Structure formats: C-alpha cells, structure tokens
Amino acid sequence: MDNTFEGRLLIGATGSAAVATLPMYLAALRTVLRGPITVLMTHTAATFLPAHTAGLFADRVVTGADPATWPADNHATLAAGHDLTVILPASAHTLSTVAVGAAPNMLATTVLAATHPVAFFPVMTAEMWAKAAVQRNVARLREDGYHVYDPASGPRYDVAAGAFVESPQPPPPPRFLEIVRELMG
C-alpha cells in the first residue's frame, strides 16, 4: 500500500529547545510527503537549530533575517503558497501570541494570514503546560478554529536536574505523519 500523500507544507519552528528534534520530523516527512516543505524559523528557533541544518531536510528555510528576501518570503506569500501550516514545536510564547491575534514576528503574521488549516504541537515543561494561562490560550486557539494537539508525555533529559524526567513533548514521528496526512485531506 502506498502511504504517500501530496501537499505544500509550511513548518513554523519556534524557540523551544525541542526544535533540535525538527530534523527527525523533516526526515520522516521526506519518506511520505510529495511536495515542497518550507521551514519558517523564529529568531529564537534559529539560536537552537541553525537554519542551514534545517535546510538539509527542507526545500526552503525562511528566517526573515535578510531584507533582500522579504519581497518573496513574506507573510502573505508564505500563507498563500502552502496547504497546511504546522507549528512544531509550539512554544508557550507562540501559543499566547496567536491566541491574542498579535503579529510581532513573521511566523505569527503568517499564521494570521493563513486561510488553510494551522496545527500547533506544543512543547514545554509540564509545569508550564499545566498553567491556567497556557490552557486558556490553547482553548482560545481551538475556539478560533486552530488544531492544537496535546503533547505526548515521555522522558527528556533535564540539564538542571541532571536526570531524565517525564515531560510533555511532540508526538512520535509516525503519529505526527498521520496527523499531517489527515490535515492535508
């Protein structure tokens, strides 16, 4: 059975240390997605994962850092040029920003301009995820028609504790691929 699917995917990468796992998701996408993959990185995401590393797996990486790229790589062209936007990882900051309709960076502005489905995959500490403010933002995003997927729970290394702790994290790549396939229709 052929499990490939087609579409133009925009992945918004935010400033969570979990962005370091993005190449694993991009590599998994390459095995089933027939269509271009663009990664739109926030400034903070690019501090955790160099844009050129994401570029090894994506057709295009946009950071907005070079004004010469703004005419072709702006919020309107990015939103119009894709069939689905997924935010992976979605930081608490990004959830809050989009929930209130703010546009302080190219990623938030692109999400506001999107007429196609937008999905968020939150990643943060368990303490952050449990906060009432974060849960209010998640509820608001869902009310506004966005897809927000509760994080999976699993072990991650906590540098401060010097040990592995149970923590919210993105779904494993096979589940992520299922979700993207479903949203691409």
Rank of each mutant, 00 (worst) to 15 (best):
residue 4 T to D: 14
residue 8 R to Q: 11
residue 9 L to S: 04
residue 10 L to G: 03
residue 12 G to E: 00
residue 15 G to V: 04
residue 17 A to K: 11
residue 17 A to G: 14
residue 20 A to C: 14
residue 20 A to R: 12
residue 23 P to V: 06
residue 23 P to D: 10
residue 24 M to L: 15
residue 24 M to H: 14
residue 25 Y to M: 05
residue 25 Y to V: 11
residue 31 T to P: 01
residue 31 T to G: 08
residue 32 V to F: 12
residue 32 V to N: 06
residue 34 R to D: 14
residue 35 G to P: 15
residue 37 I to H: 07
residue 39 V to W: 05
residue 43 H to K: 15
residue 44 T to Y: 12
residue 49 L to R: 08
residue 50 P to V: 13
residue 53 T to N: 06
residue 54 A to N: 01
residue 54 A to S: 02
residue 58 A to F: 10
residue 63 T to C: 01
residue 69 T to W: 06
residue 76 A to H: 08
residue 76 A to E: 06
residue 79 A to S: 08
residue 80 A to H: 08
residue 84 L to F: 05
residue 85 T to N: 08
residue 86 V to S: 11
residue 89 P to G: 08
residue 89 P to T: 01
residue 93 H to P: 04
residue 94 T to D: 03
residue 96 S to G: 13
residue 96 S to Q: 03
residue 101 G to I: 13
residue 104 P to W: 13
residue 105 N to M: 04
residue 108 A to C: 03
residue 109 T to W: 05
residue 112 L to V: 07
residue 113 A to D: 04
residue 113 A to P: 14
residue 114 A to F: 09
residue 115 T to L: 05
residue 116 H to G: 08
residue 120 F to I: 00
residue 120 F to S: 03
residue 123 V to D: 02
residue 124 M to E: 08
residue 125 T to Y: 06
residue 126 A to D: 13
residue 127 E to V: 14
residue 132 A to W: 11
residue 133 A to I: 13
residue 134 V to D: 02
residue 137 N to L: 08
residue 138 V to R: 05
residue 141 L to C: 02
residue 141 L to Q: 03
residue 143 E to L: 12
residue 144 D to M: 08
residue 149 Y to G: 09
residue 151 P to G: 07
residue 151 P to A: 06
residue 152 A to W: 00
residue 153 S to E: 13
residue 157 Y to F: 15
residue 158 D to Q: 09
residue 159 V to D: 15
residue 165 V to T: 11
residue 166 E to H: 07
residue 167 S to K: 07
residue 168 P to D: 03
residue 177 L to T: 03
residue 178 E to N: 12
residue 178 E to T: 15
residue 182 E to V: 14
